[in-house]
Write a protein that binds this DNA or RNA. Structure first.
Lengths: 240, 240
DNA sequence: CGTCGGGTTGAGGGTGATCAAAGTTTGTGG
DNA sequence: CCACAAACTTTGATCACCCTCAACCCGACG
């Protein structure tokens, strides 16, 4: 499917766009660019003049402290525009990096801004996407701030599962996750060693397994329970 | 000053609004409501039909886990609209509570939405406010995820100082902060006891003191350094 | 003057960090 | 196809930061 069709479909999950809105979005200029795994799409300090629509692959946003520690802030999947904020926040305050090889739809700010100015509903749909981002950040704060290690991991996996399903990827009993335990550690505010131990616990408890970049869900329901996962914050249900 | 004038002034810090935009904002219907300390403005699950502009006082957003632990997600001060997201995210995924007695300007969603649809620049200004919110969340993740306890506290205080200055409150050497050590603990992902100990360290090191809801800055520069504080993420500099 | 919320301090314990080493995959070049 | 290197995973031993529990103190306020 065309990248912009995917975007329309995604926005329509939460916003009532009419045919003209949809057409306008699909006429957005976009060119495809591929990035190798572990490469930077934009980094802190950049002033991008375009946004990156993920067509395929996994990416993450992260920051590095003055003491050299890395914190992953969010994981992004197909259909996400992780740097949409750069439309209105002109300098990047964090990095956007690929976790796997990615194909990215590059959309110039000019065109996006023109579109949002002429079509308020499209602006609202995109605005809402950035608000959902923020909601995910909030839950992420709770995760690293208040949950024990095993629950953090369980929560992260549960969130990813839910989001993958929302974009139509069936995670029935397993799904790809191109992250190392070091990446997971940086996402969870833990050390890689401890992630490994916690993983072992979840495996022994029959909740999940993780080998060679694939998550195998043994008991997704219990996993969500251990992680205290409640998908309200993803705001995926049709808007009422 | 009128609440809506304050809002205009705030938005103009980051966005070029013309006179008509400003007038349109100032014509927004708003009524003043006061909340006692420690009360809820909106809570998780609510579907608010209006937004809350903080005119005076301190508020915070927070979530409670299934195991009953509370995590404070952000602190809000005069000029903030902490639940601006509710304009487009219809059900609250967290609570908004007062930390001190607050006077709130209540603005109906209808009016706000009409304004953003008719005036794209106002929409962009408000959108940007929610994006800065998200930037603050991101830094908050780094704080609880990757910094040791003393640095977390130092960072939080440095952030508040910077934000208070941005709205014109001189924090020369001290400022009010209506939070208990328990509140701070919930903001930092620590226990109250440990916050107390860390506070003692910062006090003994001559960085800051905190008594009876006032922060006394002894060495703000060093405090920022200990907290690894860099204000880039607040996006306060005039937009270029 | 008594109560209550909040601050302070101490003792002991546990989760997760650190350090270290061995094992396993994956990929690469000969 | 094998040899080797690099990256990642796994495990063990030890350590420390922060938590828990508990007691006491202090100031505000009725």
């Amino acid at each position: 499917m065309e990248p912009l069709e995917t975007l329309v479909r995604r926005l329509r999950l939460t916003t009532q766009l009419d045919a003209e809105d949809a057409q306008a979005i699909e006429k957005l200029p976009v060119y495809i660019k591929t990035f190798p795994s572990q490469s930077a799409i934009v980094i802190e300090g950049d002033r991008p003049a375009q946004c990156a629509l993920i067509v395929k692959g996994f990416a993450c946003r992260c920051k590095t402290t003055d003491t050299g520690k890395r914190q992953i802030l969010s994981i992004h999947i197909a259909g996400d525009i992780p740097d949409l904020q750069s439309l209105h926040l002109h300098v990047m305050d964090h990095d956007l990096k690929t976790l796997s090889p990615c194909t990215i739809g590059v959309i110039p700010h000019d065109a996006l801004r023109a579109l949002t100015r002429s079509r308020p509903l499209v602006a609202e749909a995109l605005w809402r996407e950035t608000l959902i981002d923020a909601a995910v950040f909030r839950e992420w704060i709770v995760n690293v701030g208040r949950r024990p290690a095993a629950a953090r991991l369980a929560h992260l996996i549960s969130e990813l599962r839910r989001r993958l399903e929302a974009i139509g990827i069936d995670t029935g009993e397993h799904f790809d996750l191109p992250m190392t335990q070091l990446d997971l550690a940086d996402a969870l505010g833990l050390t890689p060693v401890h992630v490994n131990r916690v993983m072992k616990v979840l495996r022994n408890d029959g909740l999940m397994e993780f080998r060679r970049n694939v998550v195998r869900l043994k008991d997704a329901e219990k996993l969500a329970q251990v992680g205290g996962f409640d998908d309200l914050y993803l705001h995926q249900s049709p808007q009422l």
